[in-house]
Write a protein that binds this DNA or RNA. Structure first.
Lengths: 186, 186
DNA sequence: TTGAAAGTGTACAGATCAGTTCATTTTGGA
DNA sequence: TCCAAAATGAACTGATCTGTACACTTTCAA
C-alpha cells in the first residue's frame, strides 16, 4: 500500500475544511480541488465523517508539534509557558488564520456524543496534559490549575482574534499569563 | 401586520439552530418543528440567511439583556464585573448549554465578509462597549484594557466549558478576574 | 358580514448532497 | 516486460437542500 495519495488527500482536505467549513465542503468540491477522484476518496475513507476524523488527527498532530516545539525553543520551563502566547501571536498574524479547527468542528457537530465532537475535545485534553507537565517542571504550586488558567487564556485569545476587533489578543493574554505565572511560582 | 408568527418563528428557530447547528438544520425540518408552513417562513424572510440574521439579532438582544441585568443586580460596578462570571457559571450548568451562538455562527460561516460572520463580530463589539462602560464606572485606570481582559476570560471560559473536561471554567476565570480587577483599581 | 391579509398544504424545480458502480487507465515493483 | 494494485472518469442512486407556485383556508378588523 502506498500511503502518499491518502496523506495528500487528508492534508489538502484539511486546508479546505479549515477555510470553508465542514458542512459547506462537499465531497465533489473536495475531489475537484484536490485532484483526487471521488472513487479513490471513498476507497480510503468509507464516509465523509471518517475523512474528517483523519483530518482532525492530522491537525492535532501538526498543531501540538508546532506549538510545543516553539515553546521548547524558549528554554526554561517558565519561559516556555510564556512563549505559548508568542506562538499564538504569530499564528493570528497569518492571513489565513481562521480560528481553531477543533472549536469549529465542535460547533458544526454540536452533539457531544458525535465522534467528531469527542475527538475535538480529546485534542484539548492532550494540550492540557502537555501544558500541565511543563507547569510542573517550572515548579508551579498547582500545575493543573496553572495549566487550566493558561489554556483558558489561549482559547479566549483565539476566539477574540477570530471574532473580535482587538489589536493584539495574544499580547493581552500574555500580559495576564505573566502575572499568573509569577504568582504560581513564587 | 401581526408580528406574532414571525417572532414565534425566530424564537423557535433560535433554539433549533443553537441545538443542531445552522447548516445541519434544513428549512423543511424547521417548518416541521415550529409548525409554521414553509410558505409563511419564506414570506417573512426571503432566504435562510436572512432568517439566521434575525435569529442572531434576537440572540444578541436576549444575551446582553440577560447578562447585564444579572451583573446589575450585584450592585457596585466592581462587584458587577465579577458577577459576570457567576452568570456564566449558571449558563454553563444548564443541560442545554452548547457554547456561544456567535462563535458557532462564525465557525459555520468562516468568510469574514459574510453578513452572518460580520454580525457575530458585532455582538462581541457590543459586549465590549458595555463592559468598558462598567469598568469605567468602577474607576479602572485603563477601562478598555480591563474590558478586553475580562472578555478574553469570558470567551475562554465558554470554549472550555463546551469542549474541555474542566469542572468549573467559570470559577477559574473568576479567580483570574479578581486579580485583574484588584490590580486595575488600586 | 364582508373582504383583504395572513397562513396552510402540497407539489414542484433545480441544485447539491453522500455514496456507488463499473469499465478503463495508470502506476510501480519484481 | 509483466501484473496486480491503485487510481481514474463518468454516470448514476436516492435523499436532501433552498426556494417557488398555487389553490385553499383562516383570521381579524371595519
Amino acid at each position: 500500500m502506498r500511503p502518499s495519495k491518502r496523506d495528500e488527500l487528508v492534508r489538502k482536505a484539511l486546508n479546505i475544511f479549515y477555510r470553508e467549513g465542514f458542512h459547506a465542503t462537499g465531497m465533489d468540491l473536495l475531489s475537484g480541488e484536490t485532484g483526487i477522484s471521488k472513487t479513490t476518496m471513498f476507497k480510503h475513507f468509507h464516509s465523509k465523517d471518517e475523512l474528517i476524523l483523519a483530518v482532525l488527527r492530522l491537525r492535532d498532530q501538526d498543531f501540538r508539534t508546532w506549538l510545543f516545539r516553539r515553546m521548547a525553543e524558549a528554554g526554561e520551563p517558565r519561559a516556555q509557558l510564556l512563549a505559548m502566547f508568542d506562538a499564538l501571536a504569530e499564528w493570528f498574524a497569518k492571513p489565513d488564520f481562521r480560528s481553531c479547527m477543533f472549536i469549529k468542528a465542535a460547533s458544526e457537530y454540536p452533539d457531544p456524543d458525535h465522534p467528531i465532537h469527542v475527538q475535538s475535545a480529546e485534542h484539548k485534553r492532550m494540550l492540557f496534559r502537555q501544558l500541565q507537565a511543563i507547569a510542573s517542571e517550572a515548579g508551579a504550586k498547582d500545575p493543573a490549575g496553572l495549566a487550566r488558567a493558561l489554556l483558558l487564556l489561549k482559547e479566549g485569545a483565539i476566539v477574540t482574534a477570530h471574532l473580535g476587533h482587538e489589536a493584539d489578543p495574544a499580547g493581552d493574554a500574555k500580559a495576564i499569563a505573566e502575572k499568573l505565572i509569577s504568582a504560581a511560582l513564587d
